[in-house]
């Protein structure tokens, strides 16, 4: 680590977040009891487990709120590893003085989302801290589910020729939050926050399914960079094929952000063997979140190895790298 303190850059989901995680789990790794650093861990006995924390600001945003987000975030980490969202644990750290009605709203929306996907609240905890101890309320969730995929899904399965698919327009959650945070109202801009399990379930029957990722912090760009680096293969994208809503694009243009790195909360990237590519696409298109799913590129064995390249809309070639540090809006 180059710094002596934690910075906001460490929370941005890009390369710096990965550095922080490696730094923190070092003691576990060296003892051989560390995690495999996927969205959820596959446990012996056919179960998957994940943990996630939620500190979104504002807590209510177009397309969702903190409670809905907490459930989707946990459930989606399980889903992309082929596990059903069965059990949820929720831990709340609440600042003294926080309005009870608002807290109840988040729990109500969490309950509604759980009910919709068949998830049971199995455990929970509350802590109240003096004013100033946290900002409002922090939600942490732990989720547990049965693995339904016949084989483990993960980066290790990626092969040359695999087709890359994204389940819908990217960057909507990040853009919705940025629009609220920077008071830039964009009509029709909503977070994509939604459970992925209903869309994922039918995909698990495909023998050619390689791996899936929930494109959260760091966005689609970060996920694909991790796939390329993790597999040592090259990933080739077609810029024009990547679905981006006009609202997201225009907000990003104003703030100087790249939609590739904007967070999603109900959008997944998946890699599938070429023979199952069309099947995967049509299965996704039948689901509520996947109507605008699209093939966006391919895994190749060529150069540059371990990197993501993109053919741009004007026919140029460029590289896609992980974002570095905190995303800050630019000047002009």
């Amino acid at each position: 680590m180059k710094t002596t303190t934690v910075t906001l850059g460490h929370g941005s989901g890009g390369r710096q977040s990965a550095e922080l995680v490696r730094f923190l789990v070092e003691g576990f790794m060296t003892r051989g009891i560390g995690p495999e650093l996927e969205d959820a861990a596959l446990l012996p006995g056919g179960y998957a487990m994940t943990v996630d924390g939620f500190t979104v600001m504002p807590r209510k945003f177009p397309g969702g709120d903190l409670g809905h987000l907490a459930v989707c975030g946990c459930a989606n980490d399980l889903a992309v590893r082929g596990a059903s969202p069965d059990y949820l644990g929720l831990s709340l750290v609440i600042e003294e003085g926080f309005p009870l009605d608002e807290l109840k709203d988040y729990m109500e929306s969490a309950a509604a989302t759980c009910a919709a996907i068949g998830m049971t609240l199995a455990a929970g905890d509350t802590k109240v801290v003096p004013a100033g101890g946290v900002e409002g309320v922090l939600f942490s969730g732990c989720a547990f589910g049965k693995v339904h995929s016949p084989f483990p899904l993960g980066i290790g399965n990626l092969r040359e020729g695999d087709i890359l698919i994204v389940s819908g327009p990217i960057g909507r959650h990040g853009a919705a939050i940025a629009s609220a945070r920077f008071s830039l109202e964009v009509e029709g801009l909503e977070s994509d926050c939604a459970p992925l399990w209903p869309a994922v379930r039918p995909l698990l029957s495909l023998g050619g399914l390689r791996c899936m990722r929930d494109c959260t912090r760091g966005g689609l760009g970060t996920v694909l960079c991790e796939w390329a680096e993790g597999s040592g293969l090259s990933i080739a994208l077609e810029e024009e094929a990547i679905p981006i809503e006009l609202q997201v694009q225009s907000l990003c243009d104003v703030l100087g952000f790249d939609p590739l790195y904007m967070a999603c909360e109900g959008t997944l990237a998946l890699a599938v063997a070429p023979e199952d590519g069309q099947k995967a696409l049509s299965l996704l298109k039948e689901s509520a979140i996947g109507r605008n799913a699209a093939v966006i590129g391919q895994v190749s064995g060529g150069e540059p190895k371990g990197m993501v390249s993109m053919r741009t809309s004007i026919g140029g070639e460029r590289l896609v790298d992980m974002p570095w540090g905190e995303l800050l809006p630019r000047i002009c």
Binding site: D258, T312, I314, G315, G316, R318, C332
Partner: peptide
């Protein structure tokens, strides 16, 4: 600077 970034983002140098 916006030109600089756009030149990179659109891969103009490769053309």
């Amino acid at each position: 600077g916006t030109h600089t970034v756009s030149i990179f983002r659109s891969g103009i140098r490769s053309l």
